[in-house]
Amino acid sequence: MEFLWCLVVGLMTACGVFLMLERHIVRFLFGMILVSNAINLAIFVAGRLTRGNPPLIASDALLPAAGYANPLPQALILTAIVIGFGLLLFTLLLAYRAIKELGTADMDKMQHAETEQ
Protein backbone atom coordinates (compact mmCIF):
# COMPACT_ATOMS: atom_id res chain seq x y z
CA MET A 1 0.00 0.00 0.00
CA GLU A 2 2.78 2.43 0.93
CA PHE A 3 4.50 1.61 -2.32
CA LEU A 4 1.45 2.63 -4.36
CA TRP A 5 1.19 5.88 -2.45
CA CYS A 6 4.86 6.55 -3.09
CA LEU A 7 4.18 6.16 -6.81
CA VAL A 8 1.29 8.61 -6.54
CA VAL A 9 3.50 11.12 -4.73
CA GLY A 10 6.22 10.69 -7.32
CA LEU A 11 3.81 11.13 -10.20
CA MET A 12 2.27 14.25 -8.68
CA THR A 13 5.69 15.74 -8.01
CA ALA A 14 6.80 14.99 -11.55
CA CYS A 15 3.72 16.67 -13.03
CA GLY A 16 4.12 19.57 -10.63
CA VAL A 17 7.78 20.13 -11.42
CA PHE A 18 7.04 19.90 -15.13
CA LEU A 19 4.43 22.63 -14.76
CA MET A 20 6.69 24.72 -12.54
CA LEU A 21 9.33 24.80 -15.23
CA GLU A 22 6.91 26.60 -17.54
CA ARG A 23 7.38 30.31 -17.98
CA HIS A 24 3.67 31.02 -17.72
CA ILE A 25 3.01 32.21 -14.20
CA VAL A 26 -0.39 30.55 -13.86
CA ARG A 27 1.01 27.20 -14.94
CA PHE A 28 3.76 27.67 -12.41
CA LEU A 29 1.06 28.17 -9.80
CA PHE A 30 -0.72 24.97 -10.79
CA GLY A 31 2.57 23.14 -10.55
CA MET A 32 3.13 24.58 -7.13
CA ILE A 33 -0.28 23.39 -5.93
CA LEU A 34 0.45 19.89 -7.20
CA VAL A 35 3.86 19.73 -5.57
CA SER A 36 2.66 21.05 -2.25
CA ASN A 37 -0.15 18.49 -2.22
CA ALA A 38 2.32 15.79 -3.13
CA ILE A 39 4.46 16.85 -0.18
CA ASN A 40 1.47 16.69 2.15
CA LEU A 41 0.77 13.18 0.92
CA ALA A 42 4.41 12.30 1.42
CA ILE A 43 4.20 13.37 5.05
CA PHE A 44 1.06 11.29 5.41
CA VAL A 45 2.71 8.20 3.98
CA ALA A 46 5.89 8.81 6.00
CA GLY A 47 3.74 8.64 9.14
CA ARG A 48 2.84 4.98 8.28
CA LEU A 49 -0.54 3.89 7.02
CA THR A 50 -3.03 1.98 9.13
CA ARG A 51 -6.69 1.22 8.57
CA GLY A 52 -9.71 1.65 10.74
CA ASN A 53 -8.05 2.37 14.08
CA PRO A 54 -8.68 5.94 15.21
CA PRO A 55 -6.20 7.16 17.84
CA LEU A 56 -8.81 7.36 20.58
CA ILE A 57 -8.40 6.07 24.11
CA ALA A 58 -11.34 4.13 25.51
CA SER A 59 -12.68 5.63 28.72
CA ASP A 60 -11.53 2.65 30.81
CA ALA A 61 -8.06 2.36 29.27
CA LEU A 62 -4.81 4.24 29.70
CA LEU A 63 -3.45 3.68 26.21
CA PRO A 64 -5.11 3.52 22.80
CA ALA A 65 -5.57 0.06 21.31
CA ALA A 66 -2.54 -1.38 19.54
CA GLY A 67 -2.06 -0.48 15.87
CA TYR A 68 -3.85 2.85 16.12
CA ALA A 69 -3.40 5.47 13.41
CA ASN A 70 -0.66 8.01 13.99
CA PRO A 71 -2.41 11.34 14.61
CA LEU A 72 0.67 13.54 14.36
CA PRO A 73 1.17 13.47 10.56
CA GLN A 74 -2.44 14.55 10.20
CA ALA A 75 -1.87 17.47 12.53
CA LEU A 76 1.25 18.39 10.58
CA ILE A 77 -0.59 18.15 7.28
CA LEU A 78 -3.48 20.22 8.58
CA THR A 79 -1.02 22.93 9.61
CA ALA A 80 0.77 22.68 6.30
CA ILE A 81 -2.53 22.88 4.40
CA VAL A 82 -3.62 25.97 6.30
CA ILE A 83 -0.27 27.65 5.69
CA GLY A 84 -0.26 26.49 2.09
CA PHE A 85 -3.78 27.87 1.67
CA GLY A 86 -2.64 31.30 2.82
CA LEU A 87 0.45 31.29 0.64
CA LEU A 88 -1.52 30.07 -2.37
CA LEU A 89 -4.12 32.80 -1.91
CA PHE A 90 -1.39 35.39 -1.78
CA THR A 91 0.46 34.01 -4.77
CA LEU A 92 -2.71 33.78 -6.82
CA LEU A 93 -3.55 37.42 -6.17
CA LEU A 94 0.05 38.42 -6.82
CA ALA A 95 -0.07 36.60 -10.15
CA TYR A 96 -3.29 38.38 -11.00
CA ARG A 97 -1.77 41.77 -10.14
CA ALA A 98 1.41 40.93 -12.04
CA ILE A 99 -0.49 39.97 -15.18
CA LYS A 100 -2.60 43.09 -14.93
CA GLU A 101 0.19 45.53 -14.16
CA LEU A 102 2.93 44.10 -16.31
CA GLY A 103 0.66 43.05 -19.18
CA THR A 104 2.23 39.62 -19.53
CA ALA A 105 2.08 36.22 -17.89
CA ASP A 106 5.46 35.17 -19.28
CA MET A 107 8.00 35.26 -16.48
CA ASP A 108 10.84 35.78 -18.94
CA LYS A 109 9.28 39.05 -20.04
CA MET A 110 8.92 40.34 -16.49
CA GLN A 111 11.98 42.55 -16.47
CA HIS A 112 10.73 45.74 -14.88
CA ALA A 113 12.77 45.28 -11.73
CA GLU A 114 15.98 45.00 -13.72
CA THR A 115 15.91 48.30 -15.55
CA GLU A 116 17.88 51.11 -13.95
CA GLN A 117 15.63 53.96 -13.02
Partner: peptide, 18 residues
Protein backbone atom coordinates in the same frame (compact mmCIF):
# COMPACT_ATOMS: atom_id res chain seq x y z
CA UNK B 1 8.85 47.18 -10.61
CA UNK B 2 8.04 46.15 -7.08
CA UNK B 3 5.40 43.65 -8.23
CA UNK B 4 7.87 42.22 -10.67
CA UNK B 5 10.47 41.92 -7.92
CA UNK B 6 7.88 40.34 -5.64
CA UNK B 7 7.06 37.63 -8.20
CA UNK B 8 10.69 36.49 -8.21
CA UNK B 9 10.97 36.68 -4.45
CA UNK B 10 7.75 34.77 -3.85
CA UNK B 11 8.37 32.06 -6.42
CA UNK B 12 11.87 31.18 -5.23
CA UNK B 13 11.02 31.35 -1.55
CA UNK B 14 8.02 29.09 -2.04
CA UNK B 15 10.27 26.45 -3.52
CA UNK B 16 12.51 26.66 -0.49
CA UNK B 17 9.50 26.34 1.78
CA UNK B 18 8.24 23.24 0.02
Amino acid sequence: AQIDAAVKYVVLNLISTM
